[in-house]
Computed example of a mutant assay.
Amino acid sequence: MLSIAICDDDRKDTDKLETLVNGYMSQSPFSYDIKKYCSGEELLESSETFDLLFLDIALGGMNGIEVGTKIRESNRGLKIIYTTSYKQFCKQAVNRAHAFAYLVKPVTKDKIDRQLDEILSCIQEEHEDKETVAFEIMEITDKGELESRIKDFEVDDIFYFEYFNRKIKIKLEKEEYFFKDKMKDLADKMQLHNFETCHQCFLVNLRHVKKIKGYEVFLNNNDIIPVSQKRSAEFRKKLNTFIQNSI
C-alpha cells in the first residue's frame, strides 16, 4: 500500500491535485491511499507515516519548507514533491528539505504523470533492494501447540526488539513475534542494519526514532521506550551520526 498525503491550504488546488493523482494511480499496479491536510500543523500532528507527500510551500502558519524539514526528521525515507507558485523558493526546497522534486502551479496532468513515473520507479527499486533478516519465531498453532518456523522480516518494518519474559519480542507496526536469543548476540547482528541498544532490554531501529526526551525514545508508531542513564550519551551520539549520514 502506497501512502500518499496532500498538504495545501487552498481547497481547489488540493481537490485538483487529488483528482490528478487518482487518475494516474488508478491505472498503476500499486494499491494506494490518499489523505489530505489543510495546514502544516495538522500534517505534523498526524500519526500517519507516508511514502509520498505533495506539499505546498506557501502555507499559512508554518510554511512548506519548515514543515518538510520537520517531517523528514522522523520520516527520512519520505519523498516530498513541492507545489508552488513561486519559483524562487524551489532551490531552497531542494537544499533544505531535500525535496524529490517541485511542481510550479498550475499543476497539470502531464506534470503529475511525469513525476509519478519517476517516484514509483524509485520506490520500486528501493523495495527490490530492501534488507531482510530471518528469525526462528515461536507461534501457537490452531491446536494450541507451540511450534517454530523461520520467518523473513524487512529491516525497515521492525521498530524494535524487546527482551521479555526470557524471550525476545520483534515489534512491527501492527504485529509482534517472539523468538529466543541473547540480546548481546542480536545487537551484534543488527548493528549492521542501524539498530542500537538504548536499554539492556531494548534494541531500537534508528530509522523509526522520532525524538529523544529525557530518558525516553519516541518512535514513529507512537511507542515510547526507555533509555538507560548509562547508555544515554552513546545512544544519542549514534543517533545523531545516523541522521547526519541519512541527509
Rank of each mutant, 00 (worst) to 15 (best):
F195P: 01
H199K: 07
Q191V: 14
T14K: 07
C198P: 01
S232Y: 07
I150G: 01
D10W: 03
M62D: 14
K16S: 13
R236H: 11
T141F: 05
Y160C: 08
T241F: 05
T141M: 11
L53D: 00
L43D: 04
K79Y: 14
S31A: 14
K210N: 13
K230D: 13
D8P: 04
I158T: 02
I243T: 13
A93S: 12
I212M: 13
K171M: 15
F242H: 09
E136S: 00
L17P: 02
L206R: 02
I243V: 13
L206N: 05
I65N: 02
Y37N: 04
V67N: 09
K111F: 08
V209H: 00
C90H: 07
G61V: 05
K87L: 08
E66C: 02
S39Q: 10
R96T: 10
G23M: 08
D33Y: 11
I158F: 09
K79A: 09
R11I: 15
S228Y: 11
K105T: 06
D181A: 12
G60F: 07
E48V: 02
M25E: 08
A101V: 06
M138P: 00
K91V: 15
N205M: 00
I34C: 11
S26D: 12
K79Q: 13
E41V: 02
N240L: 13
L203S: 03
L43Y: 05
F202D: 02
D152C: 03
K213M: 13
A187C: 14
K184D: 15
L116W: 00
D129W: 06
E42Q: 09
H98G: 03
Y32F: 14
E41N: 08
C38T: 12
M62Y: 07
I119F: 10
Q191G: 14
D51F: 01
R76Y: 15
V104H: 00
R166N: 15
K174L: 08
K109G: 05
K12V: 10
N205D: 10
I224S: 05
V204Y: 04
K171H: 13
C38L: 10
L146C: 04
L55K: 04
N220L: 10
D33M: 11
Q88M: 05
Y86N: 11
N240D: 15
L219T: 07
A93F: 03
Y215D: 12
V133N: 00
H127Y: 12
F135Y: 09
L52A: 07
V21I: 12
N245Q: 10
N165P: 01
S228V: 01
E45A: 04
F235G: 05
M62C: 01
A93C: 13
L17C: 12
G64P: 01
A97W: 03
